[in-house]
Each structure stands twice: as structure tokens, then as C-alpha cells.
């Protein structure tokens, strides 16, 4: 674990760059992490991010199948929003731990 300043806030991050404490997250942090990955966030992105944060806060496990059934985006759209990392990149930007799901 180390401390990194993202968007002017000192946050605890894991070795792979995931926020250790999801309560330290805010939208500016999301924008900055997204920029590092190469994603420009839109309101649709934030809908997905908030969904992931809600599920994580409720201690539910995340799968892309679950996101696809959420009614927010289809799996194809999820890949469109977060290319090459539908769950990994979205989790990183959402300030939640690295996903542990295989699906």
C-alpha cells in the first residue's frame, strides 16, 4: 500500500493502483484515474461507476453479467465504455478494490 496524490487528494492505493478506501473517492479522482487509462468519462460512465460502488458497498460480488443485467448498460456497451477492461478499469476508476470475479 502507498499514498498517492490524485486530483489534489492524498489517497491510499494498492500496488496495482486501486483505491484502498472507497470513501476517499470523488468524481475528480475518477476523472484523473480514467485519464491515466485513456478513458474520457461521460455521464453514462458515472452511472456504471455508481452502480459498481453501490454493489460494492452492499458487499455484493461484481460480474460483467451482473452489470449487463443492471439495466444501465448491455455487456457490449460496457466494453464500449471501458475497452479492454470492462470490470478491471471500471473498478479502478470507481475507487473500489480489484475485482475478484472470473466472470
Amino acid at each position: 500500500m502507498s499514498v498517492k496524490t490524485i486530483a489534489g487528494v492524498a489517497v491510499n492505493i494498492s500496488e496495482e493502483g486501486y483505491l484502498e478506501d472507497m470513501s476517499q473517492w470523488n468524481e475528480e479522482i475518477a476523472n484523473e484515474i480514467a485519464k491515466e487509462i485513456g478513458i474520457e468519462l461521460t455521464p453514462k460512465h458515472f452511472e456504471v461507476l455508481n452502480y459498481l460502488r453501490d454493489k460494492t458497498a452492499a458487499k455484493e460480488s461484481l460480474t460483467i453479467r451482473g452489470v449487463g443485467k443492471s439495466g444501465i448498460v448491455t455487456i457490449k456497451e460496457l466494453y464500449g465504455l471501458f475497452p479492454k477492461g470492462p470490470l478491471k478499469f471500471s473498478s479502478k476508476i470507481a475507487g473500489i478494490p480489484k475485482p475478484t470475479s472470473c466472470i
Binding site: 460480488s61 460480474t63 453479467r65 449487463g68 455487456i75 457490449k76 466494453y79 470475479s101 466472470i103
Partner: peptide, 15 residues
């Protein structure tokens, strides 16, 4: 949350 085969195939091609 493991989908039936038809849905699993769709997930793979969706990505």
C-alpha cells in the same frame, strides 16, 4: 452467476 452457454457465447462476442 455463470450464465447458460448461449448467453456465455454472447458475452464473449460482446467483448
Amino acid at each position: 452467476d455463470m450464465p447458460p452457454v448461449d448467453e456465455f457465447l454472447e458475452m464473449i462476442t460482446a467483448g
